[in-house]
Nucleic acid binder design. Structure first.
Lengths: 139, 139
DNA sequence: TAAAAATTGAAACATATCTTTCATCCATCC
DNA sequence: GGATGGATGAAAGATATGTTTCAATTTTTA
């Protein structure tokens, strides 16, 4: 289901060698346990001109909880930011953003991310190619 | 659909203020055009003990196409590696891997990634928290 | 402005879908 | 070893689903 989210329980049952009813019970249990979460439809980034992946490392001026929380809420408001992680080490945050071109990224960085009060420095790195991208966790 | 991949066309129609038939036609067109790709089910990483995100930067010994291609195929074989990008700048690749704990990552790195002939160096960075994670591209 | 082309919505259609029920099977525990 | 609890599969049931058709409307083209 991680690879084919729209598979029917009947097909799934055949694939795993169980009954449809058994699949239904297991899926329901996993949903209730919060293991299986939402179903999403993936979009081809190149097809909608968002094929450029940029990674942005951010260092904060202050590490106090309020500033961090404010920055995290702030970063959530940017649709171009698909991923953001609070990091150990020299950089406080690592962001993955998708844009159509470098100009678009410049705008996101200069008029967006860097305008936040708590941000001290940033360092951007551009992906030349997405070698692998999957949402499926191991087993 | 990027946020709710299992929405029915009837619900979608109501949401966007169009008919179900119209939705069906548009979806079919986007699928045929390769814009809408597969539907996937997301899994709660913490629930299956894969809640630790690690970023690994890799530098290659050689930059020749054969070595790169071989490494990229190699990296595809690791289920823990969810994302891998060929990068500009000082590092050749950036990898995001999910593991249960640091021990598990040590094994992936030492017995996996670093065993590849073309790899020169690597640098790993651990995420303390996933602040934002979405698969939905902007608009 | 008039003709042509494309898009739309409503309804009908056929089908696939999830969900429940029930009897059976298996494993476990006292 | 018998009884209890849990899991299983097959079938039935009700419903929601995708897909097509057709007439009407809108947009484009000449």
């Amino acid at each position: 289901m991680q690879e084919q989210g729209d598979i029917s329980q009947a097909q799934l049952a055949e694939k795993v060698g169980a009954s449809a009813a058994s699949c239904w019970r297991r899926i329901t249990k996993l949903e209730d346990a919060g293991v299986l979460t939402k179903t999403v439809r993936l979009v081809n980034a190149d097809a909608i001109d968002k094929g450029l992946n940029v990674f942005c490392q951010v260092r904060m001026k202050s590490h106090d909880p309020a500033a961090r929380h404010d920055f995290e809420t702030f970063i959530h408001s940017y649709a171009e930011v698909l991923e953001c992680y609070s990091m150990s080490g020299e950089w406080d945050y690592l962001i993955r953003a998708v844009v159509g071109d470098v100009r678009e990224y410049e705008a996101l960085l200069m008029e967006g991310i860097l305008t936040h009060d708590a941000v001290l420095t940033s360092s951007s790195h551009f992906a030349l190619k997405a070698v692998k991208y999957t949402t499926a966790l191991p087993v």
